[in-house]
Design a protein around this nucleic acid. Sequence first.
DNA 1: AACCCAGCCAACCGCTTTGTA
DNA 2: CTACAAAGCGGTTGGCTGGGT
Length: 273
Amino acid sequence: MGRAPCCEKMGLKKGPWTAEEDQLLIAFIRQHGHGNWRALPKQAGLLRCGKSCRLRWTNYLRPDIKRGNFSKEEEDTIINLHEMLGNRWSAIAARLPGRTDNEIKNVWHTHLKKRLKNYQSTSNTKGQTVTEPKCDSNASSESNTMNSGFESSEYASVSPQDSSSELSSVTDLTGLPNNVVIKDESMDTSETFPQIDESFWSEELSTGNSTMQSDFAGFAEELQFQFPLSPSISASFGTMEHVNEYNFNIDDDMGFWYNLLIKAGGLPELSEI
DNA sequence: AACCCAGCCAACCGCTTTGTA
DNA sequence: CTACAAAGCGGTTGGCTGGGT
């Protein structure tokens, strides 16, 4: 399988983009879209490779990109999502409208990792047991395999073991309510599902923004899990189905919500199935 | 004023995944 | 099913900038 030849072609420009190049790219995409990145530079009159154009567009020129500093809320969201998803920057970026994976990655390495470290060292001095989250380059999806047998799929990187055992140390930071019980890895597989703590839902979801709620509704709809939800909360989402069957062919978003549910103690962990 | 250094971030590199003939 | 091209993605690099000496 040959790799796509890229910028090694003679005569193609590298390095920082000029304003003129930006204008050419913007004008071309506005007029023709970007169906084929490879053909685009030639058609647009740019001496760049398609890859470079795509990167410039997606990371900088796209009209829906939000520039400027990250808000506290955005930073907290990144920390939470990173706890669940690891270094899957595109998956994290998908939940932060207007932010790019590159930008989030940079912010993580330059600010948030440090902030988390500071927080943890503070916690340590208070006698709490704190573990470094998988936040450095070693935390690739390959290394995020679960340690209890569910190792072969996409789930590895969003697994509860990835995060939940460590999450307890950053509970305050992630904003999860203190009464959310992080489940132990060695939970009995025959155990019935614990009752969800209502305060978890009311704080995490019911009072969350509409996107969060609709995401959750979609999750519930697709996953079709058996879920001992209280009638009041069930009504607030409307799409809950109490089906005695799990469907684990679920994507990243599902993984996100799945982890949220695990944190609430509402689902057995994947390894238990 | 000149130099050094650390932090930041845009851009690149190369591997993986996806689409298609 | 296979081979290849194209796109996507995450890790890394290197230039710029601002603060400190």
